[in-house]
Amino acid sequence: MADMMQFDLVSPERRLASLQVREVRIPGVDGELTAMPGHAPLITTLRPGVLAVAGAEGETDYVVTGGFAEVTATGVSVLAEVAHPTKNVTQAMIDDMVAEAHRLHKEAGPDLVDAAAKTLADMVALGGRIGLEPKLP
């Protein structure tokens, strides 16, 4: 089908999705982007956020904390550091992710402190986006 493309999402623990979709909204480090069939090829680094997939069965959202997305004219492959269906993410999981980002920010050297602060801010915003308010350490 010309209006559909292949979507694959994998994390170190497992394959989360492999299906035909109409579009994938990707939280890239340079901003959100939407990939659809026929998209120009690109590779982007992921920032913490919500990866949204629209297919024949409706929309499915996944929480991702980093990784890479490869977009081609025929599909999107996402290799995520951490990925969970949004409906399975708990308050404790968000709190743990924010606490880890906070720890990394505190330990970051001068050359990485800005990137670590951005990651921490993205983690906090991610919790709010899915309706969970993370506890800040």
Rank of each mutant, 00 (worst) to 15 (best):
A2E: 14
A2D: 15
Q6G: 13
F7P: 01
D8K: 15
P12Y: 07
P12A: 08
R14D: 07
R14N: 07
L16R: 12
L16G: 12
Q20H: 03
Q20T: 01
I26H: 06
I26G: 04
V29A: 10
D30G: 08
G31N: 06
E32R: 06
E32P: 02
L33T: 08
L33G: 05
L33H: 05
L33N: 05
M36K: 09
P37A: 10
G38K: 04
G38W: 03
P41Y: 06
L42Q: 13
L42R: 12
I43M: 11
T44N: 01
G49P: 00
G49A: 00
G49N: 00
L51S: 06
V53P: 02
V53T: 07
A54P: 00
A54Q: 10
G55Q: 03
G58I: 04
G58K: 05
E59N: 03
V63A: 09
A69M: 03
E70A: 11
V71A: 04
A73E: 11
V76S: 06
A80H: 03
A80E: 02
V82K: 10
V82N: 12
H84Y: 15
H84T: 14
H84A: 15
T86C: 09
V89F: 05
T90M: 10
T90F: 09
I94K: 04
D95G: 09
D95E: 08
D95M: 07
D95T: 08
D96K: 12
M97H: 13
M97W: 15
M97E: 14
A99G: 13
E100G: 12
A101Y: 11
H102T: 15
R103G: 11
K106T: 08
E107K: 13
E107T: 10
A108P: 04
G109H: 10
P110Q: 15
P110S: 14
D111W: 10
V113S: 03
D114G: 07
A115D: 03
A116R: 10
A117E: 03
K118W: 01
K118G: 01
K118P: 00
T119E: 09
T119M: 05
L120M: 08
A121H: 02
A121F: 01
D122R: 00
M123C: 14
M123R: 10
V124Q: 08
V124G: 04
L126Q: 09
G127P: 05
G127W: 02
E133C: 11
E133Q: 15
E133W: 10
